[in-house]
Design a binder for these strands. Sequence first.
DNA 1: AGCACGCCGACT
DNA 2: GTCGGCGTGCTC
Length: 723
Amino acid sequence: MPSEYRVEVALDVPLPATFTYLAAAALPVGARVAVPFGTRRLAGVVTGPGDESADTAKLKAVDALLDDLPPLPASWLELVSFTAAYYHAPIGQVAATALPTALRGAAPVRLNDTRPWRLSSAGRLAEPPAARAKAQRALWQALSCGVLSKDAARAIAGQAGKLLAEWDAAGWLERVDTCWRDAPVAAGPELTAAQAAALAELRGTDGFAAWLLFGVTGSGKTEVYLRLIADTLAEGRQALVLIPEINLTPQLLSRFAARFPSTPIAALHSSLSDGERLNAWVDAWQGRAGIVIGTRLSVFTPLPRLGLVIVDEEHDASFKQQDGVRYHARDLAVWRALKARVPVVLGSATPSLETLYRVETGRYRQILLAERAHASASLPAVRILDVRRQRLAEGLSEMVVDALKAAKRRGELSLVFINRRGFSPVLSCGDCGWTSGCRHCHAKMVLHLSERRLRCHHCGAFEPVPHACPSCGNVDLKPVGHGTQRIEEALARMVPDARVLRIDRDSTSRKAAWDEIYRKVHAGEVDILVGTQMLAKGHDFPALSRVIVVNADAGLYSADYRATERLFSVLTQVAGRAGRADAPGEVLVQTQWPDHPLFAALVAHDTLGYAKTLLAERRIAALPPITHQAILRADAPDIRDANAFLESVRDTLAPPKGVTVLGPVPALMARLAGRERAQLIIESPQRAPLHAFLDAWRPDLDAAARRAGRSLRWSLDVDPQEL
DNA sequence: AGCACGCCGACT
DNA sequence: GTCGGCGTGCTC
């Protein structure tokens, strides 16, 4: 049979183009196909009609049309190609990222019918199982009362799968197409005046609108989301809810399930098997799920009846993918809402500067929830402890140890927060507060002990390491944020009889670990919790009377200009752990720089004011979000190979007016997993010339990488979140 | 990224 | 004599 048709197919290979194939019939755009590629057989997605100018002799034919599913929707393909264009990633790799694992392979996929059951008319006339078969009887009774999902059936009878199959074969059952438009919604708590006002404003729009829901910790943002979702479901439309991985807890999911008991919810969390994820994904795609709730990857779920998008904790760094296709789920979520002409709500207690800047420029609208939902819970009192010229034992001051001892005597739970993020060795003077700033730009210079010099990671300038403080002559210069390695042992030693529990990635890697930690804490078997980042968010601990931050300074002067923004955010969140119940909490922050404006804002709970300060700084320094950046990263076992690659591409193409290429400079984490990392920073006040430059540059990058050999790895990061 | 082809060292 | 090391080149 002659192959008269041609199609373009996107394949998961690191090549920028799509590939032209011959086909015996006109294949629909969005169809999944299997194609021969070299010696392999790969899965691909049809992106459009084939290139007619391609030489027929070189073309191969499509092998098979996979799946009996309908083709992927045009809106999904549009999202994939936008992502590929914006992040300068090969479209086939984006498509593979956007599909669930089960749909990435070249094997056809068969789907289970996941629709719930009810009794058919024959079933209603049939004899119920004997009363002594208790489980069978219970399952039958549940069916005769109404509709039953497979999960619900399994909860009633362990053998549900087998029984349902038998009864179905007997003709007693039928499938029900779910409709959530009239599904019941459980009553929620009464709204506060602020929540009601926020809701009224959010409901007042039609079509696309981007909102920042700016609410302090405990102000009840989730309740606002639930009410909006109820509106969306009542119109028969679907809601997409994006949540940081760490906040996507069973507690949160059961809160949604309890509010919408009969609405199918597709929860896309990390512990799903490939099959479960596929089912949830297809439920969303086929319009069977009313709510999709999940982490950044969920932004790619096709939703035919999308009516609302919510991004909770929109400032959270986990929305940015840090390898492969480096997309930002929050930004893509806003784009999706725009294309679907539906509202998007970005919620946060500490909004990102990107989002606040868009509020400032009028693109997003802001709604404030200024008070905690429980009138009795007030914001914690923050005290700044000046530790200059103090003797610190393992980073702990006497004041902090005394506070911990007093709390222990009163039987109260304290939290010692260790800020490990943003650590890079910036040199500082413990006497006068001098830090090693770069004389050519706004960045801090980083100590490179092996090279015995200071190096700027923004512009690349370097200087010898000073022997004494250039400002006051003190010879005892140290990297900021040093010396908190063995803090839990130190605590156990300095606070007699204190029961110290450490919480970090290691101690929580096992699944049962969290349950054990919760049990201990709730049973009052712990006096002091010690932990990093993980403790700042997501998990609710009761009656935290005191939060102590021992090394805030590590983020205060960092080579990464985003460090202060992140520090303020994490300190606000960890402070929010204190005093959530009836007792007002206290937060103690140790610092060598008590006069830093960050602390004044923290004490005053002035998130917005501090954000304005930071935005003003970014404007002066011409940094994001005022300007736009991309980073070309390279790593190799030998730094010279990475630098050689970056130098060879840096001058292949003259950047257009306004676009600046800086570097090569070392990455903030200059060495990782035995590889040395360096980068070029590309900056521009306008997005368009930046993207045009990256597009034109791409072939040069591919060519240079080929010349550089296999040991070199490289990637392009648009809107980087970390240096 | 895979996977082939291709040309040089230590083994049955 | 060959099994296998990973350099380089291509994939519609």
